[in-house]
Nucleic acid binder design. Structure first.
Lengths: 156, 156
DNA sequence: GCGATATAGTTCAATAGTGAAACTATTCGA
DNA sequence: TCGAATAGTTTCACTATTGAACTATATCGC
């Protein structure tokens, strides 16, 4: 691919991803239960699906500092949607865990979200949908890979 | 596609888009000039590429209230990166316009961004890249369409 | 033309997320 | 055992966001 083409492709990517992200976020926010923000729901979903997790791990996953995570989980904890479970062995670490109420809330939200996304999926053939998601996952994997590499470089 | 498959597909979409968005935002933030935030750079790029634009239009595009836009453009204006140009005919409206300095800054940033994205693009064949972007654009178009429809419904 | 109504944009108060730096408590390693 | 590393919190300053109240201007119906 020549440089000109590449540059156009990137412009198209930036434009589409901006539109998709902004609009999907807005629609998603409308479906959110009153007691949750978008970031809080993402954290809660992660905890629900990945079991006991530490603040540091969440910070990695969310690509933010640990103090941001402290803020988010404090708010979730104040609403009794998550629990802090101290590690028995290493008393510095505390695991985070969705409470039953937190789990219930995210499941309910997820089913609304699914319904909404189904509508947009109907614009695509099965083949298109699968093709798209496979490439999206490949991109995600490349980004995770890159992070891991730049980290191992730091420790040299 | 049966319901089970659909549900799995949506889970995969949510997971990939979360990863891609978080990681790309983090990488992009690192490339950003000190005087700009991510949202400010997005606003500035939009103004650069779309000429004179009103606050109301920006609010639509960004899917936020007008007061958010006021805040963003005030910060950009304080840094002399945009100009407010009052409409001659309708004195309620003011057009927004990137200053030469604002334009310079975004172009410089864009070229860094392009370089960075090129690296990730190298994981894909040309055919994959074009296929992906076409589907992404289709999704973006579907979301814009949906917004337009729900608006015309409101005015019935 | 005039009054009601709509529209464009700002201001203000409250809240969430963020990074950076300082800090506490704990563990680990030489 | 002492010094360095690690997990997590606190604090501070700042940005983005919403919603409501507000100002100024334009438009519509009579």
């Amino acid at each position: 691919m020549d440089k000109e083409q590449l540059s156009k492709l990137i412009d198209r990517y930036l434009a589409s991803s901006f539109t998709v992200n902004r609009r999907l976020s807005a629609i998603t926010r409308d479906l959110l239960p009153d007691e949750l923000t978008l970031d809080q729901s993402a954290a809660l979903r992660y905890l629900r699906d990945n079991g006991c997790t530490t603040s540091s791990e969440l910070a990695e996953i969310f690509c933010v500092g640990k103090s941001s995570i402290t803020a988010i989980i404090t708010r979730l904890s104040d609403k009794s949607l998550i629990e802090r479970v101290p590690d028995e062995k290493d008393r510095r670490v505390t695991y985070l865990k969705a409470t039953p109420e937190g789990e219930r809330l995210t499941r309910q939200f997820d089913s609304k979200l699914e319904e909404m996304l189904c509508e947009y999926l109907s614009h695509f053939t099965d083949q298109e949908a699968f093709g798209f998601i496979e490439l999206y996952e490949k991109l995600a994997a490349a980004l995770v890979q890159a992070r891991a590499e730049s980290e191992s470089e730091e420790n040299r």
